[in-house]
Each structure stands twice: as C-alpha cells, then as structure tokens.
Design a protein around this nucleic acid. Sequence first.
RNA 1: GCCUUUGUAGCUCAGCCGGAUAGAGCAAGCGCCUCCUAAGCGCUAGGUCGGAAGUUCGAAUCUUCUCAAGGGCGCCA
Length: 582
Amino acid sequence: MNIKQILAKKVSAAMLAAGLPEGTNPAISLSNRPQFGDYQANGVMGAAKKLKTNPRELATKVVEQLNLDGIADKIELAGPGFINIHLAKTWLASQLSNVANDEYIGVTQRGKSEADKKQTVVVDYSAPNLAKEMHVGHLRSTIIGDAVVRALEFRGDKVIRQNHMGDWGTQFGMLIAHLSDKLASDEVAETALADLENFYREAKVRFDEEEGFADRARADVVKLQSGDEQCAKLWQKFIDISISHSEEIYDKLNVSLTRKDIMGESAYNDDLSTVIDELMANKIAVEDQGAKVVFIDEMANKDGEPSVFIVQKSGGGYLYATTDLSACRYRSGKLQADRIIIFTDARQALHFKQVEIVARKAGFLPEQVVYDHCPFGMMMGDDGKPFKTRTGGTIKLAELLDEAVTRASGLIKEKNPDIDEVTLADISKKVGIGAVKFADLSKNRTSDYIFNWKTMLSFEGATAPYLQYAYSRIQSIFTKAEAATFSDNIQVIEPQEKALALKLLQLEDVIDAVISECTPNLLCNYLYELASLYMSFYEACPILKEGISAEVKESRLALCNLIAKTLQQGLDILGIDVMDRM
RNA sequence: GCCUUUGUAGCUCAGCCGGAUAGAGCAAGCGCCUCCUAAGCGCUAGGUCGGAAGUUCGAAUCUUCUCAAGGGCGCCA
C-alpha cells in the first residue's frame, strides 16, 4: 500500500496519453498546504521545460487524461502547472480497513512481484573495538544499523548481520601480555577485565613506561598471529569477556545483535595472504617502498597523482584494508549478498571508497552487488569541538544508559507515587533507553551532532516518551472501553481523522525511504507526526464520552487500534518498547 | 596543498536528486484539567536558509567562487 506509487502510476498513464514521452517522472509529493490538496504532481512543469512547450497547457491535457475515479474527489490545476489531488475520504476509509486487517499494516512484503524481489542484504554495524569498553561514540553505528536491519526484515528482505568486531589489532599484544601477568599473580580473568577501560590504561602505561614490556607485547602479537597456543588461549579469554561486555550493552539497548552475528577481523586472518597473492597476480597491487600498494587512478588528484592504498605493510603485516577486501569477497561470495551496507563514522569514507574500487577491480565485488558505505557524523561537545569529557575522556555507553534509566525512574515515581518497584523498573528502562535511542536516531545520519545530556535525556516534546505516551493513551482507552466492540470498518469524517488516515497509509513509503537511504530518522519523524496527529485527534474527537454514537465510537476505536499497531511496529523497528501504562 | 562533510529561528535539528507563503521540538509569552492519562492540547512571537554570483518560469535545494568549522590524505583501525 503506497499512495504515492498508486498516484504515480495513474499520472504516468495520463502523461503518456497526453503525448509525453515514456518514463517522464510524475514527481508526486505531499502537498504542503491544505488548499493544494493532499498530494500534488509536479512532473508536468519539468517535462514542459524539456519539450519547450507551455506548462499550463500541457498540464491541462494531462488532467484531461487523468482518471482517479473513486480515489480522488477533486483534481485541480494550479499555478504554472501544478496538479493538485484531493483524495476521497471514502477511498481513504476503504484503504484503512484493508491495512487494518493486514498483518504487516499495509507494508508490502518483498517477493510478491517480479519488480520487487527479495534481496539478501549483509549489514555490517556496531563493530566495537574489543580492546576497550563501548563509549557514547559507538551508539550511532549500533542503533542506526539495527534500525535499518529491522526495517529491511519488516519489508521482507533476508538480512545477514555482521558484527565486524575489532579483535585483532596490534594492541592485543599489549593486552594479553598484561593479562598474562595478572593471571600469573592469581587474579581471575573476569575480575581483571571487569573494567576494560582501566585494564587498557594499565597496559598502555606499562607499554609506554615499563622496561621490556613493549618488546614482550610486540612479540606476543607475532606469536598470536602465527598461531601460538598459549597466546591464542589468552586472547580468546580476553575476547570472550570483552564480548560479554558488549552483549550487556546490546541487551540494555534492545539491539538485535547476537554472538552468532560476530564476524570479527580475526575471522579473515587466514584469507589475507590469498587476497594479496591475487592482487599481485592480477597486477592490481604493486610493490612500492617495500610495501604492497594499489595505485588508484580513478581517484587521482588534479595533477594526475593516483590515490594510494596500502594493502600490506613493508614488514609483511596486514592492515584493515586487507581485511575489508577479504570481507567483500566473503560477503558477496559466501554470503551471496545482493547488497552490502556498512555503518561506520565518516572518517572512514575515503577508505571504503578505495576498498570498493579495488574490490571491484579484483573481482571480489561483482558489478551487480550494491556496496553502500553509510557514514555518520562525529560527536561533538557543547563547544562544537570533538567531544571529550572535562577530564579528556569519553563517556561510557553503559554510564549514559544507566543515567537515562535513573532519570526516567525519578520522573515516573513523581507522576505515579504508588507504583510498585517491579513495574517502575520495567517502565523506567523502556522510557529511559527509548529516550536515548530516539534522540540519536531522529537526527540526520550524516551530520555531526552535539552530545548533550539534557537533550539526550529529555522526556518532553519530540522524544520517545511522547510516542510511548500516545501508545499508552490508546491502551488506556481500550482498558476503559472494556468489552466495547469495534469492527475494522473505519470512517473518515473529521479533519483529524483524515490527517491520521493519510499518515497511516504512508508507512510503506517511509519504510522504503529508510531502507534505500539508510536513514532511520525518517521513521522517527513519521512516528512523531503520527503521534502528534493522534494527540490532536484525542483532544478533538471524543470516543468514550456521552453522546457518541456506537457507530462513531466503533470507528474511532478501530482507528485507535490501527494507530497503536503502527506506533508499536514502528518503534519496534527502532528497537524501542511500548507499554500499556506509563 | 589536495579530497571530503557541515553551516537553516536564541538552542537542538527537519526539509536538500528544483516547486507555491522555509517546518518541528526546546527555551520565551498567553490560554486549556468537574471532561477517554496535562510526559498533553491550542495560540503568539521568533528567519537576509554562512556570504556572493550564476542556471531557471521558480533555488534552502543545482553550478562556480568565497568565508567558517569538523574530518581524511603510504605502512593504526
């Protein structure tokens, strides 16, 4: 169910009948003013420009050919060639009833038609560095990626999650050397690694200052990478504990990543030499200053100097470039991906551009496989400079989440003094975590953003609690309505009802935009607007009050039910829970 | 130096593959709880869309230049 597509089809047909060339974009969009109808088709003006004809006359012809019987009750021609479409309330009502009875609330499942095939999509997201604890900077990749993943699944695609964890860098030599000493002095690994941040700091201090430690650390990396059993055991221990730290965060965040989605850097280790061999054999990589590099002419600067991409260090070591090339091959080959999506911060944009070019040249990434690097902005402090705490550190993600839950708890207690502890804890978690996630997800992916406790933990205005509150209000009505029956026969009468009808029928359109652009903020905006329209409806259109006819009451209850379903489903895609009471 | 991202209301941000009078939230001001949860609703105020030129019937959106900030650019990831 996609109004835009339905109208586009109709207008396209009319354009063709009016003599316009095939494939002319009808340019359907939402009208930005009520007097311009619900939707407008702006494509005629662009077409007229190309054909060098009068847009107004052309639009008249198109309108003459346009058949929207039963769908629209008014089609107007305005301005230089706008076609304004006023949808019929009866049509909206019948569409709503269809959607209300649909398991996927009107979102077409992929695979229903040849033009809308089910795809295998590999999504690489979160990817924390296991040497350290997750901090607020890891929030974005994790929750944006997860939202896109769930949107893809809801639409019916096959999604393969890939948590490309940083488990194989040089710093692991230092960490296992330090861990080895701790264990030698009878400390238990779990205790030693309870605070990863401290552990890392201790190891770093020893690496920088302690005689001989740095050499041991370097030796351990070599031993580890050449398969030394003792080092591998220590490494495994470290990784296991560090992963469980991440899992705790995923659990708190309501993120769908599990252990089976982990495909860390180390997993590609055995393939790296093959990658280099192939690049060399195909003369894609060459030796330069002792290292193996690819000169990328496609990315040359103005002076014709190619961009340089190092795939193997002069000492023979591999880099993340090598790993990412190997990952390309694994994902398109073994996982049979139609599309690969990678969420990392914007600093890696150049790197992934290079990876794609080289991988395509080397045949690791067939032409038909889509490769989308989705960058997101940096987190800034209040001063607009890269974010640091007063002490120059980072804020742990766990700390932020706990703070959010605590604050939510305080507010809920204030509003519901008699609430029991179990319910309080449950609601606090849902509200607090939801607020943090929504604050981040509702922002445009690409721009940098200012980290601010206040906006991050706000429960007023365009926030998750607002949406959750809308949902709770609906549930409260159902509780009050008790056994009240409602059919799925929804009437669209009041302007608030019409606005809601239009919004509810736009879900598929929004989901598709989220999927194609990897921008969950569009879904956030949509859900906020839906909730906001509901709040207005709630004020203007009574349901259970005196004097409301059974017919109207049942219709409104059905509308409420559909809104609740949509809110719940939409929030579920964002990984935000709803509750009946708050 | 080269490449790249960003600049919209006091603050945080939408809108950006051209469309009609640039939208929210917060903060400010004014109203609304005998009435389905006031974490709410209604209203007011707030803008040379960083600046300049260009393309166009039409520009926040496209192009060029420019200013400011962030990021990246041969052996970290």
